[in-house]
């Protein structure tokens, strides 16, 4: 079997006349952690649903875990752990009952033991008899993740698994994902957090249905051709207002007491900044673009057809 766990191309989905995912192609190798990024409404959830057979693509084909995504969704479902963006476990079942249900549905042996282990790992042993609906948002996310890991899937499709989760739990979560990755378990995870994107082996950036970037973090940054200046000084907010409308300047973003200015067109940018760079009230420095800079500039370039 090839080393590709996900291999799809030409994947498209229309809702009515609107194209929500357009000719999407993705290749994910075994054990990889693939970050899936993009603005709201860009089609991440829709793509993930097509991968696990919850939505039928209008065009395109491919395989998931060696199974055809169009015809073998039953086999795919057995080996995929899908965590939905919204909490979709049963709020009127207790935490333990929810896990029990999942374990039963997947026909797991030593069910009780596994559920107990999972509860212990989650740290929810004492609250196992509490209704899932009564959990806080972050805890719901953690429970949902535990539920989708319960049947030891080969591929994890996680739709914003850490939304609303505290930093410590997020770190634990990423530790767990990396540990699973070593064991050969593949993860496709959508997120809006840049620090999480940086923890992925590779990234795919989708905007309004179109896959714009696909590569490692450093590839994404290097290929962006974004020129970034940072400036220190006082009354930066005044400077920000003065710089924003100038030609060639795409973003002016304050980071604490530093202002980041970026753009793609070197000459135009240089020309616009020249008078301020001569001003000795400010301290200028060239710097590396961050992922966030890159993504926001990507987002500004792409046409928003989502509304």
């Amino acid at each position: 079997m090839s080393n590709l766990v996900i291999s799809v191309h030409g994947l498209s989905k229309f809702f009515g006349k609107r194209c929500v995912v357009n000719q999407f192609a993705l290749q994910v190798e075994r054990g990889q952690i693939y970050g899936f990024l993009g603005p709201n409404g860009s089609g991440k959830t829709t793509t993930i649903r097509m991968l696990c057979g919850l939505l039928t693509p209008d065009a395109g084909e491919g395989q998931c875990l060696g199974y055809n995504i169009l015809t073998q969704s039953e086999e795919i479902k057995r080996q995929v752990g899908y965590m939905t963006q919204k909490f979709t476990l049963y709020e009127d079942l207790t935490i333990r009952e929810n896990l029990d249900f999942v374990a039963r549905i997947y026909g797991m042996s030593k069910r009780r033991q596994r559920v107990t282990d999972s509860l212990q790992q989650l740290g929810l042993m004492e609250r196992a008899h509490q209704l899932a609906g009564a959990l806080s948002g972050g805890w719901k996310q953690r429970l949902a993740l535990a539920a989708c890991l319960l049947h030891e899937p080969q591929l994890l499709l996680l739709d914003e698994p850490t939304a609303g989760v505290d930093p410590k739990a997020r770190r634990d979560f990423w530790g767990q994902i990396h540990q699973l990755s070593v064991q050969g378990i593949t993860t496709l995870v959508s997120t809006h957090y840049m620090d999480e994107a940086e923890r992925c082996h590779r990234l795919a950036y989708i905007a309004y249905g179109n896959l714009l970037v696909d590569g490692t973090v450093s590839e994404v940054i290097n290929h962006s051709n974004l020129i970034v200046w940072s400036v220190k000084g006082d009354k930066l907010w005044q400077l920000q207002q003065q710089l924003t409308p100038l030609p060639g300047i795409e973003q002016v973003v304050p980071f604490g007491n530093v202002l980041h200015i970026n753009g793609h067109q070197a000459e135009l940018l240089q020309h616009s900044l020249a008078p301020w760079q001569a001003d000795n009230r400010y301290e200028w420095q060239r710097s590396q673009p961050t992922l966030e800079d890159v993504f926001i500039s990507l987002m500004q370039q792409s046409q928003d057809n989502s509304i």
């Binding site: 696990c52 919850l54 479902k77 919204k86 979709t88 049963y90 999942v102 997947y106």
Partner: peptide, 13 residues
């Protein structure tokens, strides 16, 4: 309506 269908459909049931 509650969205739990999405989860149920993602299982092999």
């Amino acid at each position: 309506e509650r969205g739990t269908m999405e989860n149920l459909l993602a299982t092999p049931a």
